[in-house]
C-alpha cells in the first residue's frame, strides 16, 4: 500500500512526522479518512480522534480543534493538542471531567457553560482514547 508523508504538529511539539498509509480524523463535517494521492483539501478539525495507520501498525491520538491540509504527497495536521492513547493523563482527564460536569450543573451563564461543555468534550474524548476505544 502506498504511503503519504504525514505530520501532526502542536504548539508544544511535533507529535508525528513520518509515513502513513491512512489517517482518519474528525473534521467539522464528520469523520474522514485520507489515503495517499488525495486531492488537495483543507478543512477544520473538531475535538476527536486521529487514527494513523502505517502498514500493520495503528496508533490513536486524542486531539482538539485545529485544521488539516491535504496534498497528494503530504498531509499536515495542525491542532492545539494531540496525545497518543498511552500518553494520556487519565487522572487529570477524570478530574477535568468532574469539574466540567459540576460547572455545567450549576452555572447558567452562556459563556461559562459553553466553556465547560468544551472542557467536558475534551476530557471525555481523552478518556475514551485512553481506554483504546475506536471510533463510534
Amino acid at each position: 500500500m502506498s504511503t503519504v508523508k504525514l505530520s501532526i504538529i502542536t504548539p508544544e511539539k511535533v507529535v508525528y512526522d513520518g509515513e502513513a498509509s491512512m489517517v482518519t480524523v474528525r473534521t467539522i463535517d464528520g469523520d474522514r479518512g485520507f489515503l495517499a494521492e488525495h486531492q488537495p483539501l483543507v478543512t477544520g478539525l473538531d475535538i476527536g480522534q486521529i487514527k494513523i495507520k502505517n502498514n500493520d501498525q495503528e496508533r490513536i491520538l486524542a486531539s482538539s480543534t485545529g485544521y488539516i491540509e491535504v496534498r497528494p504527497e503530504e498531509i499536515s495536521i495542525l491542532v492545539d493538542t494531540a496525545e497518543y492513547s498511552d500518553e494520556i493523563d487519565v487522572d487529570r482527564a477524570k478530574s477535568a471531567k468532574e469539574r466540567a460536569e459540576k460547572r455545567l450543573s450549576k452555572d447558567n451563564s452562556s459563556i461559562n457553560s459553553k466553556r465547560a461543555e468544551i472542557a467536558l468534550k475534551k476530557a471525555m474524548n481523552r478518556l475514551k482514547v485512553s481506554k483504546g476505544k475506536n471510533f463510534e
Partner: peptide, 29 residues
Amino acid sequence: SEESYLYDPSAEEVLSAVLPQYLKNVIFG
C-alpha cells in the same frame, strides 16, 4: 501546484474554522 483546493463542506465553513485558529496561533506565538 496548479490544482485548487477542495473545501469541505464549503469554503466559508472551512475558513471560519481555519482563520480564527490562525489568529490564535499567531497570538500564542
